[in-house]
């Protein structure tokens, strides 16, 4: 049962999610779409963390219970929630001022 799926399958799925999110974040005109791409990238990174937690040997010293991968994933999920809240608040605030959600309209700070 254990290790019937090779580790690199998980890593490949994570890379596919990351790459798809990267494409979305780079190519979307809608700012909410960019945010969705970032969420996909964070999910890909999370899959990597959990897969490594499951498959790779951890040096278990005294008092360490080897849950680093899952703790890392929880931190990333919490950060993603914070990032989504702040990012969407920013988008709504900008939309109120400029009546647009397209990222090319957010260029007031361009030099």
């Amino acid at each position: 049962m254990e290790a019937s799926i090779p580790l690199w399958w998980y890593l490949l799925v994570a890379a596919a999610l990351f790459g798809t999110g990267l494409f979305g974040a780079l190519s979307r005109r809608n700012a909410v779409g960019v945010l969705m791409g970032i969420e996909l990238m964070l999910n890909g990174a999370n899959i990597n963390a959990v897969a490594f937690w499951r498959y790779i040997a951890v040096p278990s010293g005294a008092g360490l219970n080897g849950m680093d991968g899952q703790v890392f994933a929880i931190m990333v999920i919490a950060l993603a929630a914070a990032e989504a809240a702040v990012g969407l608040a920013l988008i709504i605030s900008i939309y109120r001022n400029r009546q647009s959600v397209l990222v090319e309209d957010f260029s007031t700070m361009r030099g």
Binding site: E2, A3, W8, L12, G19, F23, L26, Y55, I56, A57
Partner: peptide, 23 residues
């Protein structure tokens, strides 16, 4: 850019000799 990132990560994941923990 993103498809080359995926390709590079995939090749890296496949070719690396990961220190898999024994079952």
């Amino acid at each position: 850019v993103s498809s080359s990132v995926v390709a590079a990560l995939g090749v890296l994941a496949y070719r690396t000799d990961w220190p898999i923990r024994p079952a």
